[in-house]
Design a binder for these strands. Structure first.
Length: 947
RNA sequence: GCCGAAGUGGUGGAAUUGGUAGACACGCUGGACUCAAAAUCCAGUGCUAGCGAUGGUGUGCGGGUUCGAGUCCCGCCUUCGGUACCA
């Protein structure tokens, strides 16, 4: 028969499922290899062609490793809690659990269509109670631990309590947010509430006030993503930052280890740099300033204590606790106005808009401990509450942001660093000589910094300290569709953990998913659930990253009901050997997962300190967003071709996203709706049936041309962006698979380019891969009939085969899948040229192709009489004896430009080569009779003549 | 703003360690087969001058290092990802 992908793929898909050929055992003598994909969020738009990019690459690697003798764990699951399902529930009333299940079913069918080798018996779903039982359990454990700096690991909070009873807290070295010391006697005298409050400052999961984006009009907390230009995306209502008591995870305890342990990881430098910058370690000084007229010390952190004589004002974050206390009556109005303004700005805007800062004077003064000078205390939006101590000393002469702020509010500058001997140095460089600074005058900056560390410590003004930009993770969400906290509060508001036996704490059933009017999670409405005798339950839920921070461990033993995974399973699979996922997770998800893993490592529950040994970020497959220009008007519905719309400078246009299927030449500058496209658009959007369409070639009304010719083009706006339901640009892999087959789809996605590069989806070019598969099939088939030769292969055929084996193996190892596809194409082209249909060549070639195109390979393997499934066979290895070259073709360059090429034997002497080359006519003419200045011969590479 | 990445023919891309720029494909042009079309096959295809031989030029822009730069260094531009509650 001719190559028929529908028949072949249907047949083997069934066979593989029935025979469970991808079942993975935890019990084997083979070496293990763990290949992991970042699991998807099952969105309502279904899987699009971007998702499988990484999945296909990792599937190829898994199959290759399996054929190379490893026991490979290659699982898949769903990150099933999330905001979109809840939004959908709010608008439609459909329970998130049922829409999520629907979506998962669809995802599963789509994944199955592509021929992945997942062991589906290990599937996990974060919203499944049997899974989130263990998410809740890990939270409980975090609650029950503190970070001990002497042991440099998490230790049970009961140990800490014991120490408190014995010696109080003075000698304890643990990460905490407590600013009092107490003796053992004092500790014993505290009541339960006081004790619990103190312990909260040590626990790895703890409560404190955090800020949320509150939208009064919508009566809900908004995600940053739901805010555009400072107002809610839905409705455009104002958003303010509102304080709320919330749970946090003390990830900062692990900052140093998260930073240092990266060194051993096989991750890209770019990714490591991003994580390191996110952690943001900096060495500086913690300093205390007296505040005039108050019995308060203002704590600041600075990396530049050497510039203290240039500190002309102090800045507190507007949320700083002291603001209310120190603000003078006269300044109250200014300060509250400023806070109001700042509350309407997102944190990101505050950091980004360095050109437009907002601040106000509190009326209070700090005292410079070194010279007793009064320094005015301001508040400013460019100082963030959670970074450092939420307060800085501002040195406008040596810091750009301080300078901008100082200029706006006319605050003085004092130059303290003379950079004149360092011409190229910018303000960021810690270079220069200190001036106007009393005892520091004349010192070089780095020396002055060190000197000040000593002075601050000596005089008791503070101490040297390491600060991190990394902040503790806000772990509370005022939402329904997430893990409930295993926490209940007693009448005094003291939190209590649920017992392990009470887990999982199930989400209560609800029919209305809107938040309560006071901004609490919808769970607060389930009063039967909330009230548990004397206790009331926590009504916030956990964020999206909770379930995804440990799912890779659950796959190892996904159905275990007694542990998150058995110790046997965890000790066998250890860590993920190869992890692939989107670059958009480069900091968030990876940081949280590493943190949780380290915590479990501290508890001796996992054998490695890091979860992901090697990591590759795949690029995004982007979509094309096509939209048309609608004139903003209540009276008429008029669309204008892009070139006309852009020329009408006085008119306002709305961009209406349109389905990409209607657009001709989509994704190009010439993208447009033809007459046919316009009528399809009208059919799709009947509300525009009577609209007018103005183009340069004619006008259309009611779907008919009223002037001009039928070749009209309504030019559209074409942008590259996310594939998303809202842009009507989602390309479903099912359609491609149906037309070309899964093998072709897999190979084409790989052929598109390097795995880590983003690019817009483009179907042009898939024919090349489709042709390749037919050519491969026809190597063993003639007019649909199997036609194979059992003759021994010749030297040339063996060379083609073994060159391909070498290239493909090397390229899989360095995860360069696009070049493997080219290598296959070259190989098949060569074998066709040689008219080779020999079994001894085609069988190894089929094995080689099996990880890439599993269906056609299985069929050909079967037809060639291969034993068992091709996917259980052994991957071929390259024999170097077939690859030896008799001669090397050298390019001959003159001044680096290629002018000729000559073949030499690999062991030809330098002199002979030089002589032969210089006597070539094609070279002589460049020399013009003069001798060459230099002849460079790079053995096996090239020859360059310098004239 | 800050952090990270990318930019090579008409298009996707290749060039793995500083050593022949454009492999492999798509598209396009011409040809074969066909009543015709599709499919398939063959040839050509960076731009530019030239009938040609051959030459010039060419990897986002501007400089630099080197016998030699897509690759290294300095300064820009554009696009994409992240920026702590999208996932």
């Amino acid at each position: 028969m001719d190559y028929n992908h529908i028949e072949i793929e249907g047949k083997w898909k069934k066979f593989w499922a029935e025979n469970k050929i991808y079942k993975v055992s935890n019990d084997t003598t083979k070496p293990k290899y763990y290949v992991l994909d970042m699991f998807p969020y099952p969105s309502g738009a279904g899987l699009h062609v971007g998702h499988p990019l990484g999945y296909i690459a990792s599937d190829i690697l898994s199959r290759y490793k399996k054929m190379s003798g490893y026991n490979v764990l290659h699982p898949m699951g769903y990150d099933a809690f999330g905001l979109p399902a809840e939004q959908y529930a709010i608008t439609t009333g459909v329970h998130p659990a049922s829409s999520t299940d629907e979506n998962i079913k669809r995802y599963r069918a789509q994944l199955d269509n592509i021929g992945f080798s997942y062991d589906w018996d290990r599937e996990v779903k974060t919203s499944d109670p049997s899974y989130y039982k263990w998410t809740q359990w890990i939270f409980s454990e975090l609650y029950k631990h503190y970070y001990d700096l002497r042991a440099d690991k998490a230790c049970p909070i009961t140990d800490l309590i014991n120490e408190f009873c014995k010696t109080g807290n003075a000698k304890i070295q643990a990460t905490n947010t407590l600013d009092i010391t107490f003796s053992a006697e004092e500790w014993k005298s505290f009541n339960i509430a006081q004790k619990e409050e103190i312990l909260m400052n040590y626990r790895l999961a703890y409560r404190k006030v955090g800020y949320v984006n509150w939208c009064e009009a919508l009566g809900t907390v908004l995600a940053n993503d739901e805010i555009k230009d400072g107002v809610s995306e839905r409705g455009g209502y104002p958003v303010e930052r509102k304080p709320m008591m919330q749970w946090f995870l003390r990830i900062t305890s692990y900052a140093e280890r998260l930073l240092n342990d990266m060194k051993s990881l096989d991750w890209s430098d770019a990714l490591k740099t991003m994580q390191a910058n996110w952690i943001g370690r900096s060495e500086g000084a913690q300093m205390f300033f007296d505040i005039e007229g108050h019995d308060l010390k203002l704590e600041i952190f600075t990396t530049r204590p050497d510039t203290i004589f240039g500190a002309t004002y102090m800045v507190l974050a507007p949320e700083h606790d002291y603001v209310d206390i120190i603000t003078t009556k006269a300044q109250k109005e200014d300060i509250s106005q400023c806070i109001k303004l700042v509350n309407n700005r997102s944190e990101r805007d505050r950091m980004a808009e360095v050109k437009d800062m907002t601040g106000a004077f509190t009326g209070a003064y700090a005292i410079n401990p070194f010279n007793g000078d009064k320094i005015p205390i301001w508040i400013g939006d460019y100082v963030l509450k959670d970074y450092g101590t939420g307060a800085i000393m501002a040195v406008p002469s040596d810091d750009e942001r301080d300078a901008t702020f100082a200029k706006k509010y006319n605050l003085p500058f004092i130059d303290v660093v003379d950079k004149s001997s360092y011409p190229g140095a910018s303000l960021h460089d810690k270079l220069g000589i200190i001036i106007n600074s009393d005892f520091l005058n004349g010192m070089e900056v780095p020396a002055a910094i060190q000197y000040m560390f000593d002075q601050i410590d000596l005089k008791g003004y503070g101490q040297k300290r390491v600060n991190y930009k990394l902040r503790d993770a806000n772990f509370s969400r005022q939402r329904y569709w997430g893990e409930p906290f295993p926490i209940k509060y007693d009448k005094e508001g003291i939190p209590h953990l649920l017992e392990k036996s009470e887990l999982p704490l199930l989400l209560p059933e609800l029919s209305n998913f809107k938040p309560t009017t006071d901004g609490k999670s919808p769970l607060a409405k389930a009063t039967d659930w909330v009230n548990d005798g004397e206790f009331t339950r926590e009504t916030d839920t956990m964020p999206g990253f909770a379930g995804s921070s440990w799912y890779f461990l659950r796959y190892m033993d996904s159905t275990n009901d007694d542990e998150f995974a058995s110790q046997d399973a965890v000790n066998y699979w250890k860590e993920v050997d190869f992890y692939i996922g989107g670059a958009e997770h480069a900091v968030g998800h990876l940081m949280y997962s590493r943190f949780w893993h380290k915590f479990l490592y501290d508890k001796g529950l996992v054998p490695t300190p890091e979860p992901f040994k090697k990591l590759v970020n795949q690029g995004m497959i982007q979509g094309v967003i096509e939209s048309i220009y609608l004139k903003k008007s209540d009276l008429v519905k008029e669309f204008y071709s892009e070139e006309i719309a852009l020329s009408m400078e006085n008119e306002d246009f709305a961009l209406i996203p349109i389905h990409i299927d209607f657009v001709s030449q989509y994704g190009t500058p010439n993208s447009h709706l033809s007459l046919e496209g316009i009528s399809e658009f009208i059919k799709w959007r009947p509300e525009f049936a009577n609209a007018s369409f103005f183009t340069s070639d004619g006008i259309i009304e009611n779907g008919k041309i009223i002037s001009g010719n039928s070749g009209v083009k309504l030019l559209t706006k074409s942008e590259v962006g996310k594939m998303s339901k809202r842009y009507f640009n989602v390309v479903n892999p099912d359609d491609v698979v149906e037309k070309y087959g899964a093998d072709c789809f897999r190979m084409y996605e790989m052929f598109l380019g390097p795995i880590d590069q983003s690019k817009p989806w483009d179907i042009n070019g898939i024919d090349g891969v489709s042709k390749f598969l037919r050519k491969f099939w026809n190597l063993s088939h003639n007019e649909g009939v199997l036609m194979i030769s059992e003759d021994a292969p010749n030297k040339e055929e063996l060379k083609v085969l073994h060159t391909t084996i070498k290239k493909v193996t090397e390229d899989i190892e360095r995860f360069s899948m696009n070049t493997t596809i080219s290598a296959f194409m070259v190989c098949v082209n060569d074998l066709r040229r040689l008219n080779c249909n020999k079994s001894e060549i085609l069988k190894p070639l089929t094995l080689l192709l099996a990880p890439f195109a599993p269906f056609i390979a299985e069929e050909i393997w079967y037809q060639l009489g291969g034993e068992g499934s091709v996917h259980h066979a052994k991957f071929p290895t390259s024999n170097p004896t077939y690859l030896v070259e008799d001669t090397i073709l050298y390019p001959i360059c003159v001044n680096g430009k290629k002018r000729d090429e000559v073949e030499f034997s690999p062991d030809e002497t330098q002199q002979n080569i030089e002589q032969a080359v210089l006597s070539l006519e094609s070279i002589k003419k460049w020399l013009e009779g003069k001798p060459a200045k230099k002849v460079i011969i790079v053995k096996g590479r090239m020859i360059n003549i310098v004239i």
